[in-house]
Amino acid sequence: MNLLKKITLKTPESVELKFTLAGIGKRAYAVLLDYIIWLLLLMAWTFISFIFIYNTFSEVLGDNNQLGPWFFSFYLLIFFLIYVGYFIFFEVWWQGKTPGKRFVNIRVIRDDGKPARLPQATLRALLRPVDDLFFLGLFFIVLGKREKRLGDWLAGTVVIQEEQKKTQFTFSPSPTSQDLAEQLKNQVNINQLRPEEFLIIRLYLERRDQMFPEARYSKAKELAYQVKDILELDGVPEGVTAFEFLAAVYLAYQEQEQTISLEKN
C-alpha cells in the first residue's frame, strides 16, 4: 500500500537515502499556518510603526515633520523585508523549516539530501507567488511523482516528512501487575510472543487513555485472551483485570529483552 509517496535520494557519496514525501495535506496545512503568522507579523509591524510615527510626530517634532518620509520609508523597508524574507529567513535559519513546517513536521531538503540553504530558499520564495497563482503549485504537487512545485523544480529541492521523535514511553505499573510479571517469568516462556505482538501490547498501553471507556475495556479483554493463547497459559489469572495482565506481560517481556541485551554486551 503506497498511501504516502516515498522517494530515494542519492547523495554525492552514492549513499541512498529513503524519505517519505511531505504530501499535499501537510504542505497545505503548513502554508496555511505560515500565511496566518506572516499576515499577523505584517499587521503587527504596521500597527507598531504607525503608533510610533504618530506619537513621535505629534509630541516631539510638532509640525516640523521633515523626518516623516524617512520614517515611512523605513516602515516600508521593514515591511518588504518581512514580506519577502519570512520564508527565506526561516528556511535558512531552521534548515528547511518555516514555523508552519516545523509544526507539521516537514522539511525542505536538496535533491541530494543536503539541507536547503540560502540559494534554494530564495528561489523557492521567488517562485511562491507564481505557484500560488491559480493554485498552480498545488496541481504540481498533487500530480507530480516527487511532489515538486515550480519553486522546487527551480531550486532543486524536495519537501519531506521528518521522522517523529518517539517520546520515551513511561509507564507506571500497578503492584498487581509487577507481582504477576514475576510469576509469568517463571511460568511461561515469554519469548513465544513475537516482537510485533509485543509492540501491539505496548501500543495498547500507550494509547488506551485516548480510547473511549468501553473500547478500552473490550480491547484489553480481546488482547488478553489472544496473548493467553500465544503464551499457552491454561487460563487467565484470577483476580486480575485484563489490563493488569497485559501490563504484566509487557513488563515481563521488557525485562527479558533487557537481560538479553545485557548478556550480549
Binding site: 504516502l4 499535499i24 495535506g25 496545512y29 507539521v104 510485533e196
Partner: peptide, 23 residues
Amino acid sequence: PPKPLLQPLNAGNIVTITVNLYL
C-alpha cells in the same frame, strides 16, 4: 503475524492519503 495496520494518522496525512486514494 498479521500485517500491521495503519496506525493513527495526523490531519495532514489524512488529507494526503485521501488525495492519493482519490487519484
